[in-house]
Amino acid sequence: MEFFHKLKPHHLDVLKEIGNIGAGHAATALSQILNQTIDMSVPAVRIVSFQDLPEQIGGADTEVAAIFLRIEGEAPGSIFYISQIKEAEKLIQRLTKDSHFQLEDPPFNELGISAFLEVGNILAGSYLSSLADFTNLLLQPSVPGFTVDMVGAILNYGLIPLSEVSDYAIVIDTEMMELGPEAGKIRGHFFLLPDPQSFNEIFTALGVKIP
């Protein structure tokens, strides 16, 4: 927790703005792919203990569909796009126009998975490029990974770099939701988990250094 004590409310506001800009661009990209309006929540920036993080998505046991990317470059970190299984199915069905696509019983249709990964690529790419523009930092996304599994097991992965310095994570969480005739059928959470050393980079780049 040590480091987080030094953060003032305006630091969290800066992170919120990052979530806002990043997710705003990602939502625009998603609405273009689906040709449907996508609404997003005001980003929540939370300092949460590792124990509590999975609880925010229904508990460590909850089964979800997730895309995971590492951010490489000057401010490394992890990005997750996490969706309920039914909602991810719906999204993939719409993208591939295959109403039989399912994520309950593997093996999954490969075309559907690669469509989902491509969405992950586009969302994370637009999130990151706006973040890079905003901060003037060099940031590149890794190739995305996909899995259907327990949320606790998935988040484990993104927490490892942070776990060396803390038992807490700063999570920038934005929820996206489809509007229109099938409102609410497609939604997901975008989580940005900066690595510990990245906070200094981000805050310095934006002129709000930590004392």
Binding site: G59, D61, G152
Partner: peptide, 14 residues
């Protein structure tokens, strides 16, 4: 201790 059981959820790389 018995009869209780002990559990942990969502082990990934842990």
């Amino acid at each position: 201790t018995a009869p209780d059981t002990i559990r942990t959820s969502g082990l990934g790389s842990c």
